[in-house]
Amino acid sequence: MIAMIRDFDIGAKIGLAIVVFFLAAVIFGPVLSPYSEVEIVGGVWAPPSAANWLGTDYIGRDLLVRILTGGRMTVIVSLIATCGAFAIGCPLGIAAAVIGGWFDLIVTRAVDAVMAFPGLILALIVLSAIGTSIPALIAMMSVLASTIVFRLTRAVAADVAAMEYIEIARLRGESMRWFLFKEILPNVAPTLVTEFGLRFVYAAILISSLSFLGLGIQPPNADLGGMVKENALAITFGRAAPILPALALAFLAIGVNLVVDGLLRHNARRDRHK
């Protein structure tokens, strides 16, 4: 792990620093802050001051502490949803590649059917039907993202499944569990790890979009997309309040992307030297 980070190029190191800084800020920031995220501490859209470093929001709450707690909410929801997407998509993708035949056909067509709907619109319909609780949000985001994870896993696993060592394992009569975890997963893991980073960013953007549209995280909980919406009017007064949560989201996305790019280059270098 340490050796891998040392081998990272400068872009990936910057990305890693951004991600670590962001995570540290959203984990420890709210604890260290003198205010809570629901406490009214000043005037409406007050400019930055020594007491409120980034100013206040549309009802006078501290903007910095709300960005930090909002960021935490965004990270936690996106992380769980992405894990869910991989928990569904990976095993199905590998199973489809190894079993093939009718199983592959049915699962792939079912996934195609889900993918045929535009993601955001499907999410809006489902959420207006079943309500906007956080578990419902996570479940829905997991299922949506799992289609893409399935596609990718199936494609990379199909390459591995064509190898003769898979045929040898088949001749030994190995179980599906063995194929999944011992033969295929270790070979597709590098691709999946980088994909995890990308999917995480997309999940963060999706949850923010939903919150912006009012169907994501509900007040009084803060999240980055919801904060952009709450403070949207401030833009007409020339205040930065709606820009700052958007910037925080962009900051996270860029950081993760830099790490993912670095990982890809690292893997390519390692494969060349093998």
Binding site: M163, E164, Y165, G173, K182, P186
Partner: peptide, 23 residues
């Protein structure tokens, strides 16, 4: 049967793709 499978083994042309690189 397991014994029949055991008794027939195969060695392939390209050892690179006949062994899992992660084992």
């Amino acid at each position: 049967s397991a014994d029949q499978r055991r008794n027939l083994q195969m060695v392939y042309q390209l050892p690179d793709v006949a062994m899992n690189p992660r084992q």
